[in-house]
């Protein structure tokens, strides 16, 4: 347990907060990889998920893709691409981003697809009968209602990408993984723990922000229904209990 105290002391040491190997710079690098990855992956996976969810076509693809991509070992894919491209240290970013995008696609795809799927078919039919075009149905009905689940997908994608971006340091990129990968061979376990703690804290903070966004995106109408149905269920259960007694 002493190692934990050492690690926290290391983090709080002001001399570790400056320079290219300082904590702020490593966090920024880490956030940089995460942001690029999640943006690219969202553009691909959410578009695809909305298309599949709305049209119902290619549904088997979701199950197949999410299952198959999960089995791919991240570390293996990363070093394979790095060696295959053979671009050297300066271009290590490309294989890293590809691998992280592959990792982020399954949760995003599942979130977008199940989000649209979860929209009540009667709501969509009602929108259609009011004369909305398919495009309007998608953007004005399905996407707003699916948004909490879509952001749920983004949450798990961000968590996985933040956690896995540590591996990028293995092919000589920056980020918080540097602390872990640099310190392992020299058996500096304090610094390894520092890396582990910082990544965990970063993941928790980002998750907290996204949970907040998820709450905000529940449409006002849906929230009203949720609250009223909760009140109804409690008011209904009370007399049932008293009559049982």
């Amino acid at each position: 347990m002493n190692l934990f105290a050492d690690a926290i002391g290391w983090i709080l040491d002001p001399s570790h907060w400056t320079g290219p190997d300082g904590i702020p710079n490593r966090i920024l690098e880490h956030l940089g990889y995460t942001t690029i990855t999640v943006l690219i992956a969202t553009a691909i996976a959410v578009t695809l998920g909305l298309y599949i969810g709305h049209t119902g076509r290619l549904r088997g693809l979701v199950v197949g893709v999410t299952g198959a991509l999960r089995a791919l070992p991240t570390l293996g894919l990363l070093v394979y691409l790095a060696v295959l491209f053979g671009l050297g240290i300066r271009f290590a970013l490309l294989p890293t981003i590809i691998v992280l995008v592959v990792l982020a696609i399954p949760p995003l795809l599942a979130g977008a697809y199940s989000g649209v799927q979860s929209v009540d078919g009667r709501t969509v039919d009602a929108a259609r009968s009011m004369g909305m075009t398919e495009w309007q149905i998608l953007w004005k009905v399905e996407v707003p209602l699916a948004l909490p689940l879509i952001i749920g997908g983004i949450r798990s994608a961000v968590l996985q990408v933040v956690a896995t971006a540590t591996v990028a340091a293995y092919i000589s990129l920056g980020g918080l993984g540097r602390y872990i990968i640099d310190a392992l061979p020299v058996r500096d376990y304090t610094k390894v723990l520092v890396g582990a703690l910082l990544v965990t804290i970063l993941a928790l903070v980002l998750d907290g922000i996204l949970i907040f966004c998820q709450r905000l995106t529940i449409p006002a109408g849906v929230r009203a229904i949720q609250i009223s149905s909760r009140e109804r269920s409690t008011s209904r259960s009370t007399p049932a209990v008293s009559s049982a007694a």
């Binding site: 956690a163 540590t166 591996v167 392992l184 582990a196 965990t200 993941a203």
Partner: peptide, 23 residues
């Protein structure tokens, strides 16, 4: 949920400290 946010590599390397095992 919290457990799942800890990066796997980080947890593997932190384990010896927690369990008192060899690396």
């Amino acid at each position: 949920g919290l457990l799942y946010t800890i990066p796997s590599l980080a947890l593997i390397v932190a384990m010896p400290t927690i369990l008192g095992t060899k690396i």
